[in-house]
Each structure stands twice: as structure tokens, then as C-alpha cells.
Simulated assay, not measured.
Amino acid sequence: MIVRVIALLLWLPMQAAAQGFAGLGTDAEGFAVPTPDPAFDFPQDHGPHPEYRIEWWYLTANLTGPDGTAYGVQWTLFRSALAPETREGWSDPQVWFAHAAVTTPDRHLVAERIARGGIGQAGVTVDPFDAWIDDWRMAGPSFDDLTLTARGNAFAYDLDLQATGPLVFHGENGFSVKSAQGQASYYYSQPFYEVTGSLTLPQGDVPVTGAAWLDREWSSQPLAETQSGWDWFSLSLESGDKLMGFLLREDDGGAFTSATWIASDGTTTAYPDGAFAAQPLDWHEVAGRDVPTRWAVQLPDKGIDVTVQALNPDAWMALSIPYWEGPVTVEGSHEGRGYLEMTGYE
């Protein structure tokens, strides 16, 4: 029985790792799929949607210590379904896993947790909001007022998050198209968190302040079969405006793009395929892979022409599903900070 349980816990992450992120383009038969004109229901939609195959609560934060040192923090809870239902106990087909990281200019510290649904080890409730896996937690009286905790072998963090702006919705009112063939997700963000708290690092505790961005997304087939990975940018500019943009790489060398301009007051402008551009400028070898860690990013309609540079080019997430994730700086037509995620680099 123990061997069977361990195999079930590990099956989904190992399958995803073997397929690469192109596995997210496999058939969604039996699962719900996103459709246009979503009608979101809050706070209920802050919680899980087990009828969809993949979902995440994805927070990144750009932080600063007392001496001006820049830090990055990631906290991500993933839900993946083996079947579109929930059950009590070990037979529940929902698999949960989570990633946490702290990035400094010269270190990248990561940890991972894996859990089975149905036994209380991981989950999300909405009133009050509580997302957890083991002793990692993002919880508070509401989605706008949260405490975030996680720990690994060489790090921990304890952060308070206070939202100062509204939720924003990507694509067509939260229906985010991912390919020319029409694959899509439901996608909204809270990009306006102010952060205070502390990091526990090998050299000791560090008080930090800064800003965080939380992405909520769910789907059953977010990629097309011809797409192998993505490059995703969340950029917070000194003007108070923000930019989310991604390109989904095609096997033939092309890419599908999408972007959302978020004004400082929370109003948004959605941009279709082709309006947003990102080109690698420099590549860096990490974990035996060449990964682009310096980019030219443009959104001509808003006068954006910037260079996005990794704070630490070695921010590789060496976990059961490997990818690159880390804080970045923004220079050029606009100044700022943000986060970059890159998947599917073999």
C-alpha cells in the first residue's frame, strides 16, 4: 500500500517532467475547458476548480533589504487532476505540489512539496482565504490581506501582503487565448500587493519591503500540441504602471504572444498576438542548458522599449518539473523591476 501511495503522489510530476511543458498541450477529454465571456464569482473563484486539469496560485515578489540589496521570492501552489472530481481520502484524484524560492544576486534557494488531495495535506478554502501544503501557507481574512510563509533547507520567509489596487483580468475579461488554434485559460491577477516581512537566509534574518504579484490561472489544455514552452514577463514600472506579456514558443521557431497593460489605477488594455515582442539578447548556461537571461521587450503602443535583465542568471528551479524563474530589472524607455519565468528549455 505504501509503495502504491508514493507512486500515485509522484506520477503526475514525473509525467510532466518527462513530457516537458509540451505535455500541457495533450488532450483534455473528460475535463472542462475555458469558454469566452467568463462570469467570475468571488470569493468562490479564488478557490479550486477540480473539473479543470491544471490550476495555480502563483506569487512572485520583488523585495529590498535595509542595505539596498535586491531579493526575489516565489511561492506557487499547483493543483493537477488525474480526473475531474474530488473524493475523500487517498482515492482523491487531485494532486498538489508547490514550489518556493528566494533569489539573491548570488544565490538561488529552492524547495518543493508534493501532496495528495483528500487527506487535508494541501488545499485551498476561500472564506477566509487559506491556501496550504504542509506548513507552507498563504492565508488571511481576505484575498487582499494575506500572510505568506514557506521554508526550505537553507531559507524561510514570513511576509505580509496588503492589496492596494483591484484585481485585473487578462485577455478578454479573463479569457486568455494561448494559441492560434484557440487553446485558452481563465487568468486574472492581483498585481498590487505591498509587502513587509523577513527572509531567513544562511547569513541570518533580513527585514524586507517591496511589492508582490499574484497570478490565478486554470485550464485543461493551456498549450497547443505544437508549443513547447513559454517566456512570461511581469514588469512593475516606476511610473506605477505594469505590464504582463508572454510568448509561447512554437516548434517551427515562431511564437504566439499576448500582453496586458495595467495602468497605475488598475484599468487594463489587452493586446492580441503580435502586439508584444520579446527577443533574447544574451544567453546563460545553467543546469546544462542555454537560457536567455537578458531580453529586449517592446510594446510599441505604450512606448515600451526596455531591456529586461536577470538579477541572478542562475535562478534555475531544479525540481521535479525544471524551469527558470527569477527577479529582473527593467531599463530603457521605462525603469522598474519584475519577474521572468521560462519553461521548456531542454
Rank of each mutant, 00 (worst) to 15 (best):
L201S: 12
A150I: 03
S198L: 02
L161C: 07
A154R: 05
S219F: 04
D130V: 01
D134M: 01
L159Q: 05
W213E: 06
G204L: 03
A184P: 05
R151I: 03
L214F: 14
A122T: 10
S219P: 02
F155G: 12
P128R: 01
T196V: 13
Y187E: 04
F169A: 10
Y193N: 11
R216I: 03
G140T: 10
V177A: 13
K178P: 09
D135S: 12
E194K: 03
L167E: 14
M138N: 08
G229Q: 02
T125I: 15
T200F: 04
L146G: 12
N173K: 06
L201D: 14
L148W: 13
L159W: 06
Y186N: 04
L214Q: 04
S179E: 09
W136I: 10
S219H: 02
A150L: 02
P166Y: 08
S179Y: 06
A212C: 12
G165C: 07
Y187F: 14
T147P: 00
P128A: 08
G140L: 03
L214S: 08
G210S: 12
Y186G: 12
S142A: 15
Q121N: 13
D134L: 10
G165A: 09
L148E: 12
Q181P: 00
V168Q: 10
T209S: 15
G152P: 10
Y193M: 05
A163W: 03
F175H: 15
Q181I: 00
S176K: 02
G140F: 05
L159N: 01
L223E: 11
Q221W: 01
G197R: 00
H170D: 14
G210V: 08
E172R: 01
A150S: 12
V124D: 10
V177D: 08
S142L: 10
F143N: 00
L159T: 00
G197S: 11
L148S: 07
V177N: 08
D127C: 06
A180G: 15
F129Q: 06
E194G: 02
D145I: 00
A212D: 04
H170A: 13
D205N: 11
W230P: 04
D127L: 02
D145G: 06
P141D: 14
G171N: 02
D130C: 07
Y188G: 00
V177M: 09
V195E: 14
P191Q: 07
G140M: 05
I133T: 15
G229F: 08
W132V: 05
W132H: 15
V208S: 09
Q162C: 06
A163R: 01
Q190F: 01
A180K: 02
Q162K: 07
A154G: 07
Q121Y: 12
N153S: 12
Y188D: 04
G171P: 02
E217W: 05
D215E: 08
D231R: 00
F155C: 03
P141Y: 05
D145S: 13
R137G: 13
Y188A: 05
T164A: 14
Y186C: 07
D144Q: 08
A122H: 09
Q121G: 15
V126N: 09
F143I: 13
T125L: 02
V206Y: 10
P191E: 10
L148D: 13
L223H: 07
N173M: 02
L148N: 07
R151L: 00
K178F: 10
A154Q: 14
E217C: 10
G197F: 05
G182T: 11
S185Q: 06
S228F: 15
G152E: 09
